[in-house]
Design a protein around this nucleic acid. Structure first.
Length: 830
RNA sequence: GCCCAGAUGGCGGAAUUGGUAGACGCGCUGGACUCAAAAUCCAGUUCUCGCAAGGGAGUGAGAGUUCGAUUCUCUCUCUGGGCACCA
């Protein structure tokens, strides 16, 4: 028995329970699906369990839920899992600030957020839930680390690293924002530490090339960002022998064609050869100064002005044999290329500026090609024709690039290579709350992997969190004091833990067989489910997470763990939730809690608004009035249904539909139009327009009700009404699933609307015999008439010319042209 | 500085990809219902001139292509995001 007014609180919990009890959203593996449906793996980026769900989550999961509920109704075997990205710094900070153990804090947050997600009614397969902080999960990561190491894909090196003294942890370059720690905003200094690295650079080429496979499903701007992040450039490594020394300075250049224009070589202040090249103590000091500046630059800020100093040493030009002075420049980065550049001031802007600053010679070796022009007082950086370049004079830049490269290769003084901007991924973190790196250091044996049988290396529970003095694990002797697995002597366990991006690099694969206990995941299941068909999350992950997981996927493929090349077929990046012009955040005090919204209006309303207010990829402006509007719409649906629920409660029979009254015909057409529009909009991931189509359908029915209340009483009227309302309920099901389920049941259906078959529009009801012809004169709309389809241009022209309004316009003027677009408009050009 | 994205009523946003600009929602105005209010239903709502019929302007600014431009091209301004002396 339906209540008179829409009361979400009385029905949402009921349906959530019913779905879960019947396991409606639990997906059998595709190769074991009794219904043999095609698979659809829909995944939202899993949350960090920070405590409460926020609006960004509500939005993210509402989007994912529309996709997965829609696909299910379209006949797919949909798997939408959920889990927890549960390692990370906030838990450790909570331990420091509030004395709660990170594990307790995290697990408590998880159970809180599980409740929240259930309240939202998201269609999750809870049987596949994972939490990355549990040994059942991270043990496999340790196993994979072993493989990385065994295959030379993991290595240790001392690095010049960003150090946050606040968090007492190393930060990746990309985790430093404005010279501050991205998480705590504390100041960043530098430190030299041994770190574990994963060789993502080895896959740079593939990560770039396989963009080809992603073109159709990923937003172009994300690919663009990754392209820049990987930063491929073709060029040459060239060796400049240091005069009177065995040392060699190697440079990388994308312009070997300008080799004869080298006036000097500039090396980074942190270049390893500095000590041997610079003798004078005063000069050393300046270089130290420069070196400090480069450290600043490493953190994201270029030096205000170029500075440099002559080392006093020379090197030898690889082809001409000329003496080339060696300078140190504060703008040369040790991290990119070789830490040294050949300076060609005539054809490089930075070198030009530097040469001007220190009054260095500028030798022109490229002339503009015919038609092009060089500007006076500037470097000519484009390609052209070589001059003053010995045997290469007269060649075009492109040709010279390969010819000079060849010549260098012959002499053994250079090679053509591809250079990447991408750096290897440092994964060591000096933190407690992460997966231990399964390594032991032995004085005799060196680096020794923890044997597979001893995995997982579990985090000790009894640890003190003071917030001072580095990683708490270093103070747990029972943890780090171990016997060498190889020789049995006293040894020391690695106390660094892994970057949490490691966990999120393969969780999507774990979901395919979350309970599997013989490996990270079962190959059969992974191959059955992967790649993820639709991956949904924030654009901020464009370069880090989305590159790391692509890298992991390829490595796992090469190990034979799975067979696909790419993890995510389609990527949907969603915008931020904004309120009063700023991102919703605690610090800004403009947070609206999803809880409050669910309590006041129900989950359906919250979901609906987050989908209606903006298309997914755009920022969403939170507006309480708009939320009320969505609530009103659902109420309108409810009242419409309530008014007729006696008629709607059972099937309407099959009356003759060939002679419908015009109002009923209009309703039918609108219902089928709404099916088509909603379907198209969802396919294009424009959920806002899908919802507006449903609103239009409701408005149409209301209008008829107001004008001809008895129209629905005839057998045909009953049929049309039931068809329209039934369609509406189904179209609404991915957006407002609880309400839809309630009304579906009230229509006498025994199954769930969630598993019902998505309606299909009747094409006959989508087109019309006539259309509204727009008539323009010189491109300006002057009239509109309804005309039959299929008229010839001449017929239309005759028709148009007789219209009084048009006659008036063309009186006394000659017609230059008559444009007719069938089905749309006519334009009279006078 | 470089790269990417964007700019449409009072507001959030539509527009079949070159063909009626402003769907849908919010807000506002008026009406019905009510003793009244709320809720609900109906109507109107880009600006501007006009009593009206009707005219004019209009998608950040300026130019261009076209019968026709929110859509394509160029220049500029602003906003958001990313990267940064990348050789």
């Amino acid at each position: 028995m339906l209540s008179e007014s829409y009361d979400p609180s009385s029905l949402e919990g009921k349906w959530q329970e019913a779905w879960e009890k019947r396991g409606v959203f639990n997906a059998p593996d595709p190769d074991k699906d009794p219904l043999k449906r095609p698979k659809y793996y829909c995944l939202c980026m899993f949350p960090y369990p920070s405590g409460e769900i926020h609006m960004g989550h509500l939005r993210n999961y509402s989007i994912g839920d529309v996709v997965s509920r829609y696909k299910r109704m379209r006949g797919f075997n949909v798997m939408q899992p959920i889990g927890w990205d549960a390692f990370g710094l906030p838990a450790e900070n909570a331990a420091i600030n509030r004395g709660v153990h990170p594990r307790e804090w995290t697990l408590k947050n998880i159970s809180q957020m599980q409740r929240d997600l259930r309240l939202m009614g998201i269609a999750y397969d809870w049987t596949r839930e994972v939490a990355t902080c549990l040994p059942e999960y991270y043990r496999w990561e340790q196993l994979m680390f072993r493989r990385f190491y065994e295959q030379g894909l993991a290595y240790r090196k001392k690095g010049h690293l960003n150090w946050c003294s606040n968090c007492e942890t190393v930060l990746a370059n990309e985790q430093v924002h404005d010279g501050k720690c991205w998480r705590c905003d504390g100041p960043v200094t530098t430190r030299d530490l041994y770190q574990w690295y994963l060789k993502i650079t080895l896959y740079a080429d593939q990560l770039l090339k396989d963009h080809e496979q992603l073109k159709a499903g990923w937003p172009e701007r994300v690919l663009e960002m990754q392209r820049h992040w990987i930063g491929q450039s073709e060029g040459c490594r060239i060796q400049f022998a240091v005069e009177n020394s065995k040392d060699v300075i190697e440079v990388f250049t994308t312009r070997p064609d300008t080799l004869f224009g080298v006036n000097f070589v500039t090396i980074a202040p942190t270049h390893p050869l500095i000590q041997s090249l610079v003798s004078d103590a005063g000069v050393k000091k300046i270089i130290e100064m420069l070196s400090d500046q480069v450290k600043v630059m490493d953190r994201g800020k270029p030096p205000e002005k170029k500075e440099g100093v002559f080392t006093g040493s020379y090197c030898v030009h690889p082809i001409t044999g000329e003496r080339v002075p060696i300078w140190v420049g504060n703008f040369v980065l040790m991290e990119y290329g070789t830490g040294a550049v050949m300076a060609v001031p005539a054809h490089d802007e930075r070198d030009y500026e530097f040469a001007g600053l220190y009054k260095l010679p500028i030798k022109v070796v490229i002339n503009p090609a015919a038609g092009a022009k060089a500007e006076v007082g500037k470097a000519f950086i484009e390609a052209g024709i070589l001059v003053n370049s010995g045997p290469f004079t007269g060649m075009k830049s492109e040709e010279a690039k390969s010819k000079i490269g060849e010549a260098l290769e012959k002499k053994g003084l250079g090679e053509r290579t591809t250079q990447y901007r991408l750096r290897d991924w440092g994964i060591s973190r000096q933190r407690y709350w992460g997966s231990p790196i399964p390594v032991v250091y032995c004085d005799d044996c060196g680096v020794v992997l923890v044997p597979e049988k001893d995995l997982p290396v579990e985090l000790p529970k009894d640890v003190a969190f003071t917030g001072k003095g580095g990683n708490p694990l270093e103070k747990v002797e029972t943890f780090w004091s171990v016997l060498c697995p190889k020789c049995g002597k006293n040894a020391r366990r690695e106390t660094d833990t892994m970057d949490t991006f490691v966990e999120s690099s393969w969780y999507y694969a774990r979901f395919t067989s979350a309970q599997y206990s013989a490996g990270p995941f079962e190959k059969r299941a992974a191959d059955a489910w992967l790649p993820v068909d639709c991956y949904i999350g924030g654009i901020e992950h464009a370069c880090m997470h989305l590159l790391y997981s692509r890298f992991f996927h390829k490595v796992m493929r090469d190990w034979g763990y799975l067979s696909s090349d790419e993890p995510f077929q389609k990527l949907l990046t969603q915008g931020m939730v904004i309120k009063d012009g700023a991102k919703m955040s605690k610090s800004k005090g403009n947070v609206v809690s999803p809880h409050a919204i669910i309590e006041k209006f129900g989950a359906d309303t919250g979901r609906l608004f987050s989908l209606f207010a903006a298309p997914p990829e755009k920022d969403l402006d939170w507006n309480e009035k708009g939320v009320e509007g969505c609530y009103r719409f659902l109420g309108r649906v409810w009242r419409l249904f309530y008014q007729f629920h006696a008629q709607l409660a059972s099937p309407a029979g099959t009356p003759d539909l060939s002679s419908l009254s015009s109002v009923l015909h209009v309703i039918r057409r609108k219902a089928h139009w709404a099916i088509q529009k909603t379907t198209d909009s969802i396919e294009e991931t424009k959920f806002n327009t899908a919802i507006s189509a449903q609103m239009e359908l409701v408005n149409e029915v209301y209008l008829l009700m107001a004008r001809d209340a008895k129209a629905f009483e005839s057998p045909q009227g009953r049929f049309v009404l039931r068809e329209a309302v039934g369609v509406l309920v189904q179209l609404l099901a991915p957006f407002a699933p609880h309400l839809a389920e309630e009304l579906w049941a009230a229509m006498g259906n025994q199954d769930f609307v969630a598993t019902s078959v998505w309606p299909v529009a009747d094409p006959k009801l989508l087109s019309d015999d006539t259309f509204l012809l727009v008539i323009q004169v010189n491109g300006k709309v002057r009239d509109r008439i309804s005309v039959a389809r299929g008229l010839e241009k001449a017929q239309v022209e005759a028709l148009v010319k007789e219209l009084p309004k048009i006659k008036e316009q063309i009186a006394g003027k000659s017609i230059k042209q008559f444009v007719y677009v069938p089905g749309r408009l006519a334009n009279v050009v006078i």
